[in-house]
Nucleic acid binder design. Structure first.
Lengths: 197, 197
DNA sequence: CCCTTGCGTAAGCACGTGCTTACAAAGCTA
DNA sequence: TAGCTTTGTAAGCACGTGCTTACGCAAGGG
């Protein structure tokens, strides 16, 4: 039958693969693609780094699987009209520790890892933007959604990476109130022009 | 007097130093701190890489000098109330080619270069935020300025690094209109609260 | 004319990276 | 027990990085 895995579970390929995936998800979210080394990932998973290549082929492929899993998680568990605030609070509170808010944190820190990594990164942002775009009824709602997502990204950057004060230590509630009201106006259909048209 | 530098100007320390600085400024703006290697910088300057270390000591020190020069440039040449739009258009148009808009482009691409680079990066953003904050009369105007700057940063990220569509190829005028009107409301004193207070 | 001074260069060092390989050992089948 | 497959490991390779060192060479004064 199922080969009766005892329970001490040494020598369990499925489990080690899973542990590698989890360790990678955590480290990618914490440090981004480039700064998360395969040695660190293997260490956190408690296995030899050679196994990472046996099970995933390459670091890039591993990143791809992580992204695929992470992207869907928050998107499926939160209704569209709460997504904006949920994502923002995920970014503001813990810095990507919990699995929910890992997608944006990973995006945040892997954004400059050029070429092919950018494709995976673009995939997450596409998912988020699609949902955000559904909230607006303006003709250029897709652009507005991109701008909203950009703001979240920028705020995350400033807080987590740059550490800019006073934003970095600001009260999440205060930030959230300012941003959501400004973005609400944006998405609900702000006057599309100012000086030009 | 001044040692009569002929004009073929080989073996001119001042000039090579200047060329290194200019090449570094360009490459840091184009690729960010990490991805701009000392070999590339020296090559673009047309000199040996060892000179980079003779004249600047380390790559970090060179970055510091570049940042110091770049930061002041746009800030001094544009009046405060035009800074927001100027910075945004600098980011939207050319991707940091011209010296004016290099500061934000450098910031943009060096943002995740951890530890001590972050300090230099924070210095630029502080300068920008200070000017932006002077535009608002709200009590938390500094926070609002940080949020405005964050948005610029995020938009730059999405366009230049992520390449997210439709934002990446959107008309600068359209983007600018949306952002400035939303940010105008933010800085002019938006209702500070929504659900809480 | 030598010889000190300072600019410029080629070569290399030490280290961290992603990835590979040769091998040990566990577990199953016979 | 013998043999085969699967899982794990230690060692190392190839390469790119920031940085250093030993040297060539122009220039100018005694």
């Amino acid at each position: 039958m199922g080969t009766t895995v005892s329970e001490g579970q040494r020598r369990d390929a499925r489990n080690t693969r899973r542990r590698l995936l989890e360790a990678a998800a955590a480290l990618f979210a914490e440090r981004g693609y480039e700064r998360a080394t395969v040695r660190d990932i293997a260490d956190r998973a408690g296995v030899n780094q050679a196994l990472l290549f046996r099970y995933f082929g390459s670091k890039r492929a591993l990143f791809g699987e992580v992204i695929a899993h992470n992207g869907e998680e928050q998107l499926r568990t939160t209704p569209p009209h709460e997504l904006l605030e949920a994502a923002l609070r995920g970014l503001l509170g813990h810095g990507g520790r919990e699995p929910d808010s890992r997608a944006l944190a990973t995006l945040l820190r892997s954004v400059d890892s050029g070429d092919e990594i950018g494709t995976a990164v673009r995939a997450i942002s596409d998912d988020y933007a699609r949902v955000l775009a559904s909230l607006s009824s303006a003709d250029n709602h897709e652009l507005r959604a991109d701008l909203a997502l950009s703001w979240l990204l920028g705020i995350g950057m400033m807080r987590v990476l740059v550490g800019k004060e006073p934003l970095a230590d600001a009260d999440p509630d205060e930030v959230c109130a300012l941003v959501t009201s400004a973005l609400g106006a944006l998405l609900d259909g702000l006057p599309a022009a100012d000086g030009r048209r």
